[in-house]
C-alpha cells in the first residue's frame, strides 16, 4: 500500500525536478537550438514511458491488496508482439531523428572561408594556434616542445612559415563565422567541451580531430575538460571568447604586432 503511493510520489517528484527550471545554459547557435529541441522530444518520449510504467506499477500494488485470489495467465502472444514492435519503432525513430544533428557537426562540409584554429590539450591546460595572414601553419617538431619558454606546440624555430602563427591560452573567435577547430593532444586523452555550443569532443594523442562550429552570440564561455586526464583534471579550464567580428580583427592585428616586435632582432 505504502509502496504504491511512494512509487507514484517519487515519479512525480522526479518529473518535477526535471521540469523545475531549465537546467541548460543558453544556446548560442543553430546547432545548440536543434540539440535543445531534440532533447525535449526525447524527454517527452522517455518521460511519458517513465510515468506510465511507474503509474502502472503503483496501481498493481495498490489494487492487489483487495484481491481475494490471483487470476491465472501464462502470457499473451499478441501483447508481446504489440509492445515489442511499438518500443522498437519509438526507440529507433528517436535515434533516426537525432542523426541529422550529429551529422551536422561531423559530416557536413566545412565552408571554404571558415576560420581555422588548432587546439592543443595537455595536462592540464589548453593552447590555441592561429595560422596568421599566410593561412599556413609552421612545421612542428616534437623535440622543441617546451612549456616554460612558451612553445607548447613545438613550433619549429627553423621554419619561417610559423613566424606569424599566433599561440594563445584562450580561444577567440568572431561571432557568426564558421570555425574549424583541429584538436591535437600530446600526452593523454582530454576533451573539449563548451556547454553553450552543446559540443563535446575527445582530444586523442596521435590523432588530429576536426570539430566545426559557429557561435552567434558574443560572450565568454567556459571550456571544461570532460575526459579524465589525471590529477589536475578538475582544473583544466580555459574560455571560449566570442567577439564581434571587428573586435576580433583588431585583436588579431594586435597579436601579430606583438609577435613581430618579439621577433625583431
Amino acid at each position: 500500500m505504502l509502496l504504491g503511493i511512494l512509487i507514484w510520489a517519487l515519479a512525480l517528484v522526479t518529473a518535477g525536478l526535471f521540469l523545475a527550471r531549465n537546467w541548460f545554459p543558453p544556446a548560442i547557435n543553430e546547432h545548440a537550438r536543434m540539440f535543445d529541441s531534440q532533447f525535449q522530444v526525447t524527454l517527452l518520449l522517455t518521460g511519458g514511458i517513465f510515468l506510465l510504467a511507474q503509474a502502472a506499477l503503483g496501481f498493481v500494488i495498490l489494487r492487489a491488496r483487495k484481491r481475494e485470489k490471483a487470476t491465472h495467465s501464462e502470457g499473451n502472444n499478441r501483447m508481446e508482439v504489440v509492445w515489442t514492435v511499438a518500443t522498437a519503432v519509438l526507440f529507433v525513430a528517436a535515434a533516426a531523428m537525432s542523426t541529422r544533428i550529429f551529422a551536422g557537426v561531423h559530416l557536413a562540409p566545412v565552408p571554404k572561408d571558415a576560420l581555422r584554429v588548432e587546439a592543443l590539450a595537455k595536462q592540464f591546460s589548453w593552447s590555441f594556434r592561429y595560422p596568421g595572414p599566410d593561412g599556413k601553419y609552421g612545421r612542428l617538431d616534437v623535440k622543441q616542445v617546451n612549456d616554460a619558454s612558451g612553445n607548447p606546440f613545438g613550433k619549429d624555430a627553423d621554419d619561417p612559415v610559423g613566424n606569424d602563427d599566433i599561440v594563445t591560452a584562450a580561444l577567440r573567435v568572431p561571432a557568426g563565422k564558421d570555425v574549424e577547430l583541429m584538436l591535437r593532444g600530446r600526452d593523454v586523452i582530454h576533451n573539449f567541451f563548451v556547454r553553450e555550443l552543446r559540443l563535446k569532443q575527445d582530444v586523442v594523442p596521435g590523432m588530429l580531430i576536426p570539430l566545426r562550429f559557429r557561435a552567434d552570440v558574443p560572450g565568454t564561455y567556459e571550456v571544461a575538460c570532460s575526459e579524465l586526464c589525471g590529477l589536475g583534471h578538475h582544473l583544466m579550464r580555459t574560455v571560449l571568447i566570442v567577439m564581434p567580428p571587428e573586435e576580433f580583427a583588431a585583436w588579431e592585428r594586435d597579436a601579430l604586432d606583438q609577435l613581430k616586435q618579439a621577433q625583431a632582432p
Binding site: 540539440f35 531534440q38 532533447f39 526525447t42 518520449l45 522517455t46 526507440f91 528517436a94 535515434a95 537525432s98 542523426t99 544533428i101 550529429f102 557537426v105 556547454r195 552543446r198 559540443l199 563535446k200
Partner: peptide, 12 residues
C-alpha cells in the same frame, strides 16, 4: 539510455 544512445545527445 534512450538519451545516451543518441550520438547527438552525447555531444553534451
Amino acid at each position: 539510455g534512450i538519451f545516451l544512445g543518441q550520438p547527438a545527445m552525447d555531444l553534451y
